[in-house]
Every structure is written in structure tokens, then in C-alpha cells.
Write a protein that binds this DNA or RNA. Structure first.
Lengths: 259, 259
DNA sequence: TGACGTCACTCGTACTAACGAGTGATGACT
DNA sequence: AGTCATCACTCGTTAGTACGAGTGACGTCA
């Protein structure tokens, strides 16, 4: 072996050596790494050790391995799409949720009835087992092919007396307009988290290895004291980032929450 | 073997069987999994296969493995701390960035000089290689021990003529107050992304396996046409989530960006 | 009683070996 | 010329084996 020696496990040394080689530009983004056989030769280690090292780099998101072809350097994955989470309202009262123009539904939205659970109940200010409409959408950005899972949960209490009871599959921006027309002054609170995807999320969002999931939960508040709508958006952290616009809030913090 | 059979690789079948066992409550969160030797016995496979299966579940964030003790079920990790990213301003003009009361600096902030690069330049509306002050902080939430890395980048052009040129290590909320006092009307744009941590981020934030990093970038805008300050916040997606407050924006979207 | 060494148990690392499976190019056959 | 079988190369999976290293309990010895 040439450049490896000190720290701990052999495979970590090999991983570090490869990491350095990538950082030094020896293997630029997109370039193929030497094959396992060549790495075995170069570092004079066994195949399990090489595979262990490659696996480590893969879990760091540094490599992409394609069966039958080889390992490739995955350039610093910077998000491709910026999803603007601010909400605009034009003179006519119509709302624009950024992206409405860019995203396209690939399938019919899945509309169903469900109930609040231990998570969604508190978020909506409801007890558990309260009736909800649910709408699941799979959206795809037409230019970048970025996929987004979008779920809308509408309490019966919110839908009652509006068009929503008949057409829960209405698009969010129209729902906002509906609620505003019903006399609500709307504002939203949103939380953002990230986690590793579940197996089914990996497939439906077509996530690569070591790609976290970005998940944002938006609660629509109206003039009444309890929340009106719950929306959850899930997408690949590799492909998308979220954008917010913040203006100073004259009301001293009401929202110091802790779970 | 008992419950495993169909789909693809043996180790995936074993992983699925263990995943099901966890889901079924056979191994509740916090409980120890059978040892490797017992899993070998139970599923009648070799040790590499068992280890492969366990590694897969570990990378899903479902298991935590402790050397010398065993493997343990890691219950659905819901964030512990909510970081409110909205900004409040009281009558006296002082700003409150939520969390200021809860977070504590563990070390002296690291203050240095640096330059814009290909990423930070455009974000600040500057060319590359423009001079900046940099301030790095490691903050810890006193009640939950959640760690946060915070970086502030201040262009010389912003600091000039203000207290910042002398004291770049000023806290963000005070910087906002300073800029407001200098005649700026402030607003902020913020982007959120997630990715797997780099090795050094893993250690400084004490991240466990399969824990993504939440990273948010805040740009402070004033009355002038170019941005004033850049802040980057990094924390464990396992321990923290971000919160935003959204109000309808009368200006039709100016911010449809794409990188 | 207290300190410490030992031991049994756990996972971590490393090697050899063999075969399966995906990919792409080459070349023969129609 | 076009189609398709083959082959070489890549990574994927599995088995078997050995020893290193961290942890905690137990028992011995002072």
C-alpha cells in the first residue's frame, strides 16, 4: 500500500485514501472509480475490505455504485429545485403557492377518508379519531423530474358547508381561496424535518442511496381558534430545497414550542 | 428458516423478517435484538448474511448497534427541539431570534477572516474572493443537549462604518438591531436542505448512524439592493426540526429560482 | 469489604473462496 | 445490414473461518 497507514480499521484507511483522492481531484465528479479488483491491487487488501470502504463512502453519499458498470463519484449533491413555500395573493384574492405552475400530477390524486391519530390530532387541534378527508398526490417537476409526495388532510369541521365536502380533491391554492372567501384571514405555520426514507418512500420518490427525505408539515390557520387544514410534503433532499421568506413579527413570540 | 422466503437476496429477506418483527412489537423500541449468533441460529444463515441484514436496518435508522453489548431497536425518532426561525421585533426595535434564550455557547466563537467562494458569493450578491468576516459558533440547547453549528458571514461592505468592523462576533439578533438602527428595513430569505453529514460534522454534532443533517441558510436583506449577512445553521435532523410562520405575500412571486 | 483480574458474551475487522447477475462490446450468423 | 449469442468485465451475494476489541459479571485475593 502507498498512502494509507495510521488510523484504526484498514477499511477506514482505504476509505480515507479514496476520499482524499476524490477531494484532490484525482477522481472528479462523475468519473468512475477504479474497479474493486484494481483497488484490491492498489491498496493490497482483500475484496471485503475494499467493499467495506466503498460501502462507507457510499453511505456518506460520496459514491454511486452501479451494478455491472462500476462506482462513480457523486459530486457534492446540491439541490436542483428550490421549492418556494411562501404564499402570494393577488388583487382578486386568488392564492399562488409557488410551484403550482411547475408541478404536474402524474396520477389521479388518491382521495380517502381517515381519522386523526396521535400525531395529526394535536397538529390540527383535534382529539384522536376525528374524521378527516385525505388527499394524496404524487407530483413531478416537469423540467427536473423531481418527485414530491403531497398529502392534504381536511377535518370534516373545516369542509362542512363549503365546496370541500363535495370536492376534497381541490388543489391547495383553491382551498385557501375558498376559505378566504368564507371569511377567514389565513396564515400558516410550517415545520421542517429530515429523516431517512422508509422503503416505500424510497421507491415512490426514486431515492438513491444515502439520500435523506425532506418533510415539511404546513398547518393552515384561519380566523377561528383551531387549525383548518394540514398538509405534508415529502421530497428528496438531494433534488430539492425549501425556501422561506421571513419578515419581522411585531408580536413577541407566541410559538416557543417543544415536543 | 421460518418466516423468510421470496424476494431477492437472502440478507434482504432476513432484514425484512427482522423489520416485521420490530413492527409487530416483538422487539419494542429500546429492546435488544437477538445477538448475531442467535439470528444465525434462528434464520439458518451465515454470519455475513446476518451482519448484512443488520447493516441494512441500521442504515435505515431502525437499529442502533453498540459494540460489546448488542443491537437495539431505535424507536421512531421524532425531533425533540423545534427551532423557530421567525424573527420578532419589540417596540424598542430590539430583535429576538427564537432560541436566543435557550441556546448556550459552549466555546468561544471562532472569529476569522475569509472570502466569498463559488457558493457564498452569489448568495451574498458578491463576486468571488470578496473579503468577509466569519464567525463560527457551537451552540447547545441547555435542556435537550441538542447541538447546533452556526456560521455567520459578514461582508466587509456591510461591516464598514458600523460596530461590526470592530466586533464581528456580535450575536445575530444584535446585528439585526445594529443594521436596523443604521436605517435598514430588514427582511430575510431562507433555504432549507438536508444531506448526510461529513465525517467532521458527525463528530462535532455527535450524530448517530443514519442521521441526516438539517442545514438552513439565511440571507439578511436590507434597504440596499444587495444582501447584508449570510448565516448557516446546521443541526441533527434527529434532534431538531425547524418552524416557520407564513403570511400571504401581496407581491406576486419574485422568487421563482432554480439552481 | 473492596479492588482487580478473568471470563464469557457481544460486535468489529479481515481473509479466502465461489458463484450469481447486470452491462456493454464484439463478432458471428441470418 | 441487421439481429442476436457470447464473452469479458463489473458489482452482488453467500459461506466459512479467524482473531481483535468493548462490556459486564463473577469470583478471587488482599
Amino acid at each position: 500500500m502507498s498512502e494509507i497507514q495510521r488510523p484504526g480499521a484498514l477499511y477506514r484507511q482505504v476509505a480515507a485514501a479514496i476520499r482524499d483522492a476524490i477531494a484532490s481531484g484525482e477522481y472528479p465528479p462523475g468519473a468512475p472509480l477504479p474497479s474493486e479488483a484494481q483497488l484490491i491491487e492498489r491498496y493490497q487488501v482483500s475484496r471485503p475490505t475494499v467493499r467495506n470502504a466503498v460501502a462507507a463512502l457510499r453511505s456518506e453519499g460520496l459514491l454511486e455504485v452501479i451494478h455491472g458498470k462500476g462506482s462513480f463519484v457523486r459530486g457534492a449533491s446540491s439541490p436542483v429545485v428550490t421549492i418556494d413555500r411562501s404564499v402570494s395573493q393577488d388583487d382578486g384574492g386568488a392564492f399562488t403557492t409557488e410551484g403550482a405552475a411547475e408541478w404536474e400530477e402524474v396520477e389521479e390524486p388518491h382521495i380517502y377518508r381517515t381519522h386523526t391519530n396521535a400525531v395529526t390530532g394535536p397538529q390540527l387541534g383535534l382529539r384522536e379519531d376525528e374524521a378527516l378527508f385525505g388527499v394524496d398526490r404524487l407530483l413531478i417537476d416537469t423540467t427536473t423530474a423531481t418527485r414530491v409526495l403531497h398529502q392534504t388532510l381536511i377535518p370534516f369541521a373545516t369542509a362542512e358547508g363549503t365546496d370541500l365536502a363535495e370536492h376534497p380533491g381541490t388543489e391547495p391554492a383553491r382551498i385557501y381561496a375558498l376559505l378566504a372567501a368564507a371569511g377567514h384571514t389565513l396564515w400558516w405555520s410550517e415545520t421542517v424535518r429530515a429523516r431517512m426514507p422508509l422503503p416505500d418512500e424510497r421507491t415512490s420518490l426514486q431515492l438513491q442511496d444515502a439520500t435523506p427525505l425532506l418533510e415539511t408539515t404546513r398547518v393552515t390557520h384561519g380566523t377561528k381558534d383551531h387549525p383548518l387544514i394540514l398538509e405534508v410534503l415529502r421530497t428528496s433532499a438531494d433534488r430539492a430545497q425549501l425556501a422561506y421568506r421571513i419578515t419581522p413579527d411585531p408580536t413577541p413570540k407566541l410559538r416557543a414550542t417543544r415536543t
